[in-house]
Computed example of a mutant assay.
Amino acid sequence: MPDPRDFSAQLAILHQRSISPNGNFGFHVPTYSGNLAQATDWEESWEVFFSKSLKKALELEIQAKGHDPEFDVLGPAIFDKVIPRLLRPLESDGRSVKPSLIHGDLWYANSGIFVQTGKPVVFDACCFYAHNEYEFGQWRPTCNRFGNEYLSAYHEYVPKSAPEEDYDGRLDLYKL
């Protein structure tokens, strides 16, 4: 595993210095998480981009495994209540979200240490421009080795987005 401080410093640089070519969320070509195409059409709003992306992921899930009646209950709750509650405040009351270039599939098996330099490296990305905190949804399950020490180190470089009290809820949403 890469050193938490070195790794987080490099990730913070990627997120902070990247500039979306049109100021929007998305990417200029489709990207893939494994063999699953990601929704990368450009959107001005992070809430809209995330909603479209999650809908596409759910459609692919239903195609692969069939319809589950729980989707009829959970889908509307997530899209009509949870997403607006957690993401709309990021772009309200004068706040905005910077579209940051993210890895998009950043978990411990897609990282390592470059032997010649001892510096952290990442690979197997499915990049797009997103809310920087989206990167950390995959870090929530305990099976991922990027634990709290990595999040704490990252937030020494980049503060949590406001409103901070929604941070844990946003990461749980991004985990979906």
Rank of each mutant, 00 (worst) to 15 (best):
K55A: 09
N24I: 00
E135S: 08
L176C: 11
R95M: 04
V115L: 11
Y150P: 03
D3L: 00
P89Q: 06
K55G: 03
N148Q: 14
L106K: 06
E44R: 09
K119D: 03
P69T: 10
R5V: 08
S92A: 01
A9P: 03
G112V: 05
S53Y: 14
P120V: 01
F128Q: 09
H15L: 03
F79T: 03
G26M: 10
D6N: 07
G94Q: 05
S152N: 14
P99V: 07
P159L: 05
G169S: 11
G23M: 05
Q116F: 12
E149W: 08
A130W: 07
F7I: 00
P84M: 03
G137W: 13
D166P: 04
Y32I: 03
E59G: 14
V73S: 12
A57Q: 15
K55D: 02
L54P: 02
E70H: 12
D166T: 07
R85E: 07
F7P: 00
P84A: 00
G34L: 08
N132P: 05
E135T: 12
D166Y: 15
N132H: 14
A39M: 15
L74Q: 09
E133C: 11
C126F: 07
N110G: 01
G169E: 10
L14Q: 06
G169T: 05
E164L: 06
D124L: 03
E165T: 05
W107M: 04
F27V: 04
D166L: 15
N148G: 13
S18T: 05
Y108V: 02
S33M: 13
G94H: 10
Q10H: 12
P30I: 13
L11H: 08
T117S: 15
E70M: 13
K55H: 13
L106M: 06
